[in-house]
């Protein structure tokens, strides 16, 4: 018998009912876990192509850098990114000097000094991203009671991830016939409940990209979604690369171990 034929003769394939039982069990379990998402009243946004969601995922660095520009110039007015430090930008391709320069544009409250007072200084690359508001209450007060959420984990904290972010940013439209919006709200196709407190923030050519890419709303939405995916999961590339090595190693090792097992059992029966 060839090795392949030998594998097919494994015990757990002989007993047909058990095979069906296992695959059935596994499929249903997967279904159960995926239905957790179906139970929210989320509208599924259209799926986009993301370079980092492929099997050999890497972040589209050019897009992420543009996305950072969109965050910086548009979103950071209201949304914090408090879990990231300016030095993290070096992973996107900025040099240590560039990240230092970006950091120094911001004012950090530090202290107390020797006199016991808090003082202001310019940012260092080791500092965390500066938040637009001192606390949640200030954020709510400035935004009609709605708090612009921190964006450090937003693509992991929403069911459809970056597709959702992209959907929201491109999903603004007039409300349907006969629908009146609550005061201060806007109609959005993909926001749960459709009424969102955030106004449409992206404007055609609202940002001038450093690499001269045309800054359509679609482009800005895509790029900022890539940036936010990276912000939520900066180690994605390392994780998937390590995953490939691990899975291949374990595959080879299991196959090897299978033959060891067969060898050990060869004198039985």
């Amino acid at each position: 018998m060839t090795p392949l034929q030998k594998i097919y003769k494994m015990e757990n394939f002989v007993n047909i009912p058990k095979k069906i039982f296992f695959s059935f069990f596994l499929i249903i379990t997967m279904m159960i876990t995926s239905t957790i998402f179906a139970s929210t009243n989320a509208v599924k946004p259209p799926q986009n192509e993301w370079k980092h969601r492929s099997l050999f995922g890497t972040f589209d660095r050019a897009a992420a850098q543009r996305g950072f520009q969109v965050y910086k110039e548009v979103c950071s007015a209201c949304h914090s990114l408090r879990l990231l430090s300016y030095r993290n930008l070096e992973a996107l391709g900025f040099s240590p000097e560039e990240s230092k320069a970006i950091a120094s544009e911001y004012v950090i409250k530090d202290g107390p000094n020797d006199e016991g007072d808090m003082f202001k200084r310019s940012g260092l690359s080791s500092d965390r991203f500066v938040s637009p508001y001192a606390n949640e209450q200030a954020g709510r007060a400035a935004n009609n009671g709605a708090f612009p959420p921190d964006l450090s984990l937003i693509t992991k904290a929403r069911v459809y991830g970056e597709d959702y972010i992209h959907g929201i940013l491109t999903g603004y439209s007039d409300p349907p016939e006969g629908m009146t919006l609550a005061p201060g709200m806007y109609w959005n196709k993909y926001f749960p409940g459709h009424q969102i407190a955030m106004p449409p923030m992206l404007l055609e050519n609202g940002v001038e990209f450093a690499d001269e890419t045309e800054a359509s709303i679609e482009q800005q939405a895509y790029d900022v979604s890539v940036f936010l995916s990276w912000a939520a999961d900066p180690h994605l590339e390392k994780r998937m690369a390590m995953g490939l090595k691990t899975v291949l190693f374990l595959l080879v090792f299991s196959i090897l171990m299978y033959f060891v097992k067969k060898k050990v059992w060869s004198d039985i029966k």
């Binding site: 190693f249 080879v252 090792f253 090897l256 171990m257 033959f259 060891v260 060898k263």
Partner: peptide
């Protein structure tokens, strides 16, 4: 050889 290879992989692992 088989056993040696398996042990070796185990060590690397």
């Amino acid at each position: 050889f088989l056993y040696l290879a398996a042990a070796g992989m185990g060590g690397i692992g």
